[in-house]
């Protein structure tokens, strides 16, 4: 199989992307500190309210009354941690999936399309960064680090791997994982209780959806029997019309497949 690729151009782009990535990581690390500070502050405020609430209620009413007052605040705080841990579990699974895919000859081996191989390698690294960010935030909020892959989707991926017959199946599986991740994080923007955590989930959702967009385009080209058109830069004139629009099927990103906050929480 012959693939059209301008190696020098592509290597240049990867270097450029790494530079951008380093800049983004510096910013993200700084932002992450802010995310965590804000979330910690929010937690502290919640605890303080809890103490005041308990004092106001008085000793007699403390039992049920304090519980009623405390539950929403504590629930919000623990929901933040759970959402972060579940997100980390999804990232862990994505890393495992790309790692496995890269062991296949037609994804990471000698017969692989270099663009697809490079994309999988880079995407895996980005998922590792996401996992680190989510776990760091969970840890600083007093939660445990999630080191395991997502409990709902891991058995599904494990069952799917032996049935994989070629690049099309791999890309299809990756699309599903990226979509679940993006939908979960979009949904989490509305679940978490602090502005900084909302921004963290949004900033990662946008990247997972970009992975999905490219994978959808690659999938369409593979399905259409035109793998030679998967190149960077692409031969735009030769791309079918569908390649221009297949990458973004919704005007509004859905959340139907979003994982609940507790799905991958550390027990």
């Amino acid at each position: 199989m012959h693939f059209s690729i301008d190696d020098r151009h592509f290597r240049g782009l990867m270097t450029e992307s790494d530079d951008l990535q380093s800049d983004a990581m510096r910013a993200a690390t700084a932002d992450l500190g802010a995310y965590v500070d804000a979330a910690t502050e929010s937690r502290y405020e919640e605890r303080r309210e809890l103490r005041y609430g308990g004092a106001l209620l008085g000793a007699g009413a403390l039992g049920l009354g304090a519980l009623a007052f405390a539950n929403p605040a504590m629930a919000a705080s623990s929901k933040n941690v759970m959402a972060l841990q579940t997100a980390a579990s999804i990232e862990n699974l994505a890393v495992l999936a790309y790692q496995t895919a890269l062991t296949l000859p037609y994804i990471g081996g000698s017969s692989a399309n270099e663009v697809v191989k490079a994309f999988c390698t880079k995407t895996m690294a980005q998922h590792k960064e996401h996992g680190k960010a989510f776990n760091a935030a969970a840890k600083k909020l007093g939660g445990k680090v999630q080191t395991k892959p997502n409990p709902k989707y891991t058995p599904i991926v494990t069952a799917a791997v032996p049935k994989i017959k070629g690049p099309l199946d791999v890309v299809g599986l990756a699309i599903t994982l990226e979509d679940v991740a993006a939908q979960t994080y979009v949904n989490n923007v509305g679940l978490v209780s602090t502005p900084d955590l909302r921004a963290l989930f949004a900033s990662v959702a946008g990247v997972e959806s970009q992975h999905k967009a490219i994978l959808l385009a690659v999938h369409a080209l593979l399905k259409g029997g035109a793998p030679q058109l998967i190149a960077l830069p692409p031969k735009a004139a030769k791309l079918p019309a569908a390649a221009g629009s297949v990458g973004f099927p919704n005007a509004f990103y859905p959340t139907k497949l979003a994982s609940p906050a507790a799905e991958g929480a550390v027990k």
Binding site: E16, S17, H130, Q210, A213, I214, P233, G247
Partner: peptide, 22 residues
């Protein structure tokens, strides 16, 4: 961001250049 990824691809740029949308 999906629009941006496809545009980057068409321009011959790496389509997902950063791990976080700033």
């Amino acid at each position: 961001t999906m629009h941006a990824a496809i545009l980057s691809f068409v321009l011959g740029e790496y389509p997902v250049p950063t791990a976080f949308i700033g």
